[in-house]
Amino acid sequence: MNPDYRPYHPKWHRTPIPIFWWVRKRAYLKFTARELTSLFVAYSAVLLMVHVRAAGGSEEAYERFISWLQSPLVVALHVVVFIALLCHTVTWLNLAPKAMVIRLGGRRLPDAAIVLGHYAAWLSVSGLLAWVLVGT
């Protein structure tokens, strides 16, 4: 911030902002946790490409990648990733109606209907992808 930005009386008091301002309130902590789920989103995206690359290699190389995925520590890591991604999905879908206004026949759709629609989409996409991966 530009220190000259807000000219105020020299006797007025300004409380300095602590570096750990985000632990001051539960809501701020939850906000910061929500923002940090993006790290897990990026991790999954990268691992997805690593998986694709492993699939593109030889059969032995792919087997080696699969056995890496099977090691307990890696599975544990991916359980953590999964939980973080669930947090991302739930917070993202719940906040969707804040940004969107959907009109049907001149009437604004209630927020609950928008959230419900998003959850239905999540369920269908998840079902479709699971079917593609496991069912084929």
């Binding site: 991916h78 999964f82 999540w122 992808l129």
Partner: peptide, 25 residues
């Protein structure tokens, strides 16, 4: 990105990197 990640990533992680390595699917 946030919307796509919300819709597709949880199921991919669950199936590819949890359920399959544990032999569930």
């Amino acid at each position: 990105g946030g919307m796509l990640a919300a819709l597709v990533l949880p199921v991919l992680v669950a199936v590819l990197w949890i359920a399959a390595p544990l032999g569930w699917v």
